[in-house]
Every structure is written in C-alpha cells, then in structure tokens.
Simulated assay, not measured.
Amino acid sequence: MMTDPIADMLTRIRNGVRIERTSLDMPASNMRRGIAQVLKDEGYIWDFEEIETVPAKTLRLHMKYGPNGERLITKIDRISKPGRRVYRGYKELKPVLGGMGIQILSTPRGIVSDRRARTEKVGGEVLALIY
C-alpha cells in the first residue's frame, strides 16, 4: 500500500534522472498530472502523456536533458509530508537558487510553481522543491 503517492512520483523521477532514462512510467492521478504539467511548463521535462492500461491509467513522463547529456533536475525533495504539512503565503515564497529552481505548490487554483503563485498572489501547500 502506497501512503504518499507524491513522494513515490518524486522518487521515480529522482531515480530515473540518475540513470538517465528517457521516459518514466507511473500510475496516473490528478495530482501527478498537475505536477507533470508544472514540470513541463517550467522546462524540466519535454512532455507527458496518459496511457490506457489495465487496471488503471499510466502517466508517462518524457525526460529532458541538456545538449551534452547534463541533468536538468539535480535535486528533487518532498517538502510537505503526510506527517508534517508545510504551507506558505505568496509573500513567503522566495526564489529558489536565485530563480534557477522551483517550488511546486498545491493552491486553491490548482498545482502551480512558486513563480506563478507569486504572480497570481496565492499561497498554498509546498509539495516539492526542484533544482
């Protein structure tokens, strides 16, 4: 039984980047789809697709690497955990590494990056930190 599907997704991405996989598969959910959309919008992955499989749908991420094979994702951490939720207002969201990284938030307006949350002036639960 999986108790934290977001941590599972982040671990799959972390492990896939370490061995330079071109695509990663995982069970699909609305939360994972939202995180994948943020990663695509911010340029960390090429694209994602949902594949019809039995018994449930599968989410496939197409990973992105630099021109010489360098990793775009060097660190990916789960911030808010089931045992300790972390919430931030938009004024508390500071740029990660001077804008070189992102935080992924779950807000009333959906799953967004910290840049978009500051622009829209909305806070929420900090799900992950990526750089």
Rank of each mutant, 00 (worst) to 15 (best):
Y90G: 00
R18E: 07
I35L: 03
P82D: 05
T11F: 15
N15R: 04
G43W: 13
A36Q: 02
Y131Q: 13
Q37C: 01
K40H: 13
R78W: 02
I130K: 04
P82A: 15
D114H: 11
G16W: 00
F48Y: 15
I111D: 12
K81T: 04
I45A: 10
P67I: 14
I73Q: 12
Y65T: 10
V38P: 03
M63Y: 04
V54D: 09
I102D: 08
H62K: 08
D77C: 12
F48T: 03
I6N: 01
G83T: 12
P5M: 06
L24C: 03
K57C: 07
A56M: 09
A56K: 13
G69K: 05
G98M: 15
V54E: 10
A36N: 02
R32A: 02
Y131W: 15
S29A: 06
M1P: 12
S113R: 07
A128T: 00
T53W: 06
Y87I: 04
R12N: 05
V122W: 06
V122F: 07
I76T: 09
P82F: 14
T58I: 00
I79T: 06
Y44T: 02
Y44W: 04
T119V: 10
K121G: 00
V112P: 02
R60K: 07
L97K: 15
M2E: 06
M63E: 03
R18I: 09
L59M: 09
M63H: 09
I102S: 03
L59S: 06
G83Q: 08
M63T: 12
V54P: 00
A28C: 14
G99C: 14
F48C: 02
Y87M: 05
T58S: 11
W46Q: 13
G99W: 04
I19K: 10
R116A: 12
I51R: 13
R71W: 14
L39H: 04
L127G: 08
G123K: 01
R14L: 02
R71Y: 14
M31K: 09
T58R: 15
P27G: 12
T3A: 10
K64G: 07
K57S: 10
